[in-house]
Design a protein around this nucleic acid. Sequence first.
DNA 1: GTCTATACACTGATAGAC
DNA 2: GTCTATCAGTGTATAGAC
Lengths: 200, 200
Amino acid sequence: MTDQHSTEARARVLDAAEQLFSEHGYKSVTLRDIAKAVGIKHASLYHHAPDGKEALFVEVTERGLRRHQAGLEAAIQQAEPRIEAQLEAAAHWLLAQPVLDFGRMMSSDMPAIGEVHARRLSEIAYASVMQPIQQIFRQAAARGEIKCANAGLLAGGLLALVESIHHLPAHIATQPKTGMVDAWIDVIVNGLRPNPTTAY
Amino acid sequence: MTDQHSTEARARVLDAAEQLFSEHGYKSVTLRDIAKAVGIKHASLYHHAPDGKEALFVEVTERGLRRHQAGLEAAIQQAEPRIEAQLEAAAHWLLAQPVLDFGRMMSSDMPAIGEVHARRLSEIAYASVMQPIQQIFRQAAARGEIKCANAGLLAGGLLALVESIHHLPAHIATQPKTGMVDAWIDVIVNGLRPNPTTAY
DNA sequence: GTCTATACACTGATAGAC
DNA sequence: GTCTATCAGTGTATAGAC
């Protein structure tokens, strides 16, 4: 391990930090919030994260992104080589993870941390979660399953769609999240327009 | 007007506040940031917004949402009654406005303000921007243009898609934003799968 | 590994001069 | 309408006891 000590207490700190940062954002989460979640005083955090809040945020964010990359690639690989199966595998994996709010990360979190860190995290983010999803679209196009299109645009949109499901109010989100994401994937592949061939 | 005085200086304050809040979020924007954008000292803000930061945020957010409602309904109404034309009209209007980051608003901004204000703003948000877009899908379904579906799910997703375009990195966003949003609308209506009828 | 105590900067907010 | 001055509260961070 590259970790400095990697005790079990440190793991609890990192997990709490990742969960809180990913849900509420960098600025909204204080070191006292994290400490309270772990059950210690905020000063004790500096034993596990000596370089302070920003370094802690960078560490857990990067860790989460790399986990996303590994999980996404595994989920996609073990799915059938059909675009719908692969998109559903990727989307279900994203739904099972701590929320990854790309939009907030770019508009709120990144400007709040050092420019160097921000640029590196942004690159990792795109390489980790955009690339695997872009590959799904590219390969499906190569197999002739779908029309050629801007894979980056599609991947970014799919990510946003998955995230949007978390924010739906209860009176709209009347079915399980996996069902809603599958419905969207069906729309993306087949469209909303009734297939003219079925009309005959 | 219901405004307390409604001078031109006050309008500058509200506009700067709305722009900054909508771009970076409630917590990330300080009163000193807003004051600097207007060109005054932060204490002077209390002349135009005597009730402080949270009340200012609520006011400009509500104002922006109501402007969205009016603008969306107008754009939709003057478009042809075809789903693609109406979705494009709505999306283009959203693109021309200050960014409306629904996801960050729900996960970051709302928990940071008073519960009463948060609930009211959330309701206004859904009534103002979700409802008009849901109507597009519902009416298109009634006209038989599209399959019946969860209009709320579709509306929330379309909003997220428009927002996602703002966060695309430069190497992906190689065409104008309106072109990218139009491409997505085509995907939603017609799907990515090549139409089988065109194959014969 | 966790605590208390403390230093220091920043933020929202108020008071009063001009 | 805008300013300077000032305050209390909170946030990050450090030092040192246990």
